[in-house]
Design a protein around this nucleic acid. Sequence first.
DNA 1: AACTGTGAAAACTTTCACAGCC
DNA 2: GGCTGTGAAAGTTTTCACAGTT
Lengths: 214, 214
Amino acid sequence: MNVRKISDSTVRRLSLYLNQLRALSTRGTELVSSRELAEGSGTTAAKVRKDLSNFGSFGKRGQGYRVDELRESLEQILGLQRHWRVAVVGAGKIGTALLGYRDLPVRGFEIVAAFDTDPDKTGRDVFGIPVYSVDELETRLREDRIGIVILATPPAAAQEIAERAAAAGVEGILSFAASNLETERAVPVRWMDVALELEGLSFLITSDENGETV
Amino acid sequence: MNVRKISDSTVRRLSLYLNQLRALSTRGTELVSSRELAEGSGTTAAKVRKDLSNFGSFGKRGQGYRVDELRESLEQILGLQRHWRVAVVGAGKIGTALLGYRDLPVRGFEIVAAFDTDPDKTGRDVFGIPVYSVDELETRLREDRIGIVILATPPAAAQEIAERAAAAGVEGILSFAASNLETERAVPVRWMDVALELEGLSFLITSDENGETV
DNA sequence: AACTGTGAAAACTTTCACAGCC
DNA sequence: GGCTGTGAAAGTTTTCACAGTT
C-alpha cells in the first residue's frame, strides 16, 4: 500500500464512493465502473481511479470493480471496520438533534453518551442516550471508551472541552463551534458550520450575478 | 478587481477571516496583521495575503489591515451586504434545530419559513417561524422572496424538493441529505454531512495509528 | 522596523491518453 | 470492446522571498 499524504478532498470522495457502494450492494449490483461511481458522486472517472490507486488496485480491467469487495476495502481504508463510540458535548438544539439522528449508527458511529452543564438536562436519557454532567466528562469518556467527541457547546466552552477531551485520550473531535481549537495533545479536528456554508453559497450567488467565470 | 476563479478553499478562509474581524471589531481593535488573522484561523500569513489579493489591496504596508474596513470589504465580497432570507424544508430533528439556531440571524441569514409534509407539524410556528405544508412550497418561496433553501428532508425527498426550489427561483441550496442533486436550472449546492466528517476523522485517526505521514 | 502585495518556485491535484488486461 | 491503472502533462494552490510603503 505504502500510503503517503492523502488529501482531504480524496478522503471526502472516498466517503462518497462508499455511500454509493453501500447503496449498490443493497440493490444487489455486483459490478460498477469508475464512470458510474463518478456520476453518482459528482466527480470524474479519472479521479475515481486515481483516488483508489493511492491504496492499491481494486478493479478488473475490462470489467470494473466488484461492489462488495471495493466496499470492504474502502471501509478498511477509512477505518470503519472499527465500531466507533461517540459522545456529544452540549445537549442544546444541535446536540439533541444529533442524539436522535438515525443515520449515524447506520454509518458506523454510535453515540453512547451526551454531556451538558445544565442540571435540568443531565441525569436523564434523550433518545435512549444518557446525558451526564460535564463534571463527569473525563471519567465517562474513559469508561465508555469514546473515540470521537462532537462539540455542540456554545463557542465560549468549546476550547476548554476540547482540551479536556484530548487530555482524556479522545482520538478525534468534530466541532460545531466556529472557533479555532488548540489542544495539548495533537488530535485531529474537523469543523461544521452552517453559517460558513451559507456564506459560501452567498459568495457563489453574488459573483455569478456579477458575471464572473465560476 | 478583475476576479476570475476563486477556489472553494479561499472562500472558506474568507469566512474565517470575517468571523475573526467581527470579533476584533466588537473588542474595539483597530488594526490586524496577516499573521494575526492567520493564527486565529489556522492558516498562514502568506495565504491570508494571497487570498485577499484576489480582490484588491486592503492593507497598509508596515501596519496591517484596518479591522472595520477589511470587515466591510469581506462582507461585500461574500455578498453579505444583502440580507438573506432562508427557508428550511423538513421540520424533523435537524430542521427544527436550525430554526432555533441563534447564530444564523447574527451572521446575516434569517430563516423566515419552514416546510414539512406531516400535517401534525404544519400550520404552527416553531421558534417563531411558520411551518407550511410542502404543497405551498413554490408560492411561499416566491412570496417570501427566499434566496437560499436548506434541505433537511429524508434523502428520498431531497431530489424532488431541490428541483422544485430551483424552478421556483431559489438561488442556492444547502443540503443535509447525502445524495447527489440534479437541477434543471443551475443552482449552486453545498452539502453538510455529519457522518462524512466523522468518516474523515476515522481515516485520519486510523492512518495516524499506522504511522503514516499525515 | 514592521508589514503588505506579488512575482516566481515548489508542491500538489486533476486531466489526459494509452498500454495492458478481461 | 470495455475498462483499469498509471506515467506524463496541464492546471491549481501554496510557499517563498523580497521590493516597496508607512
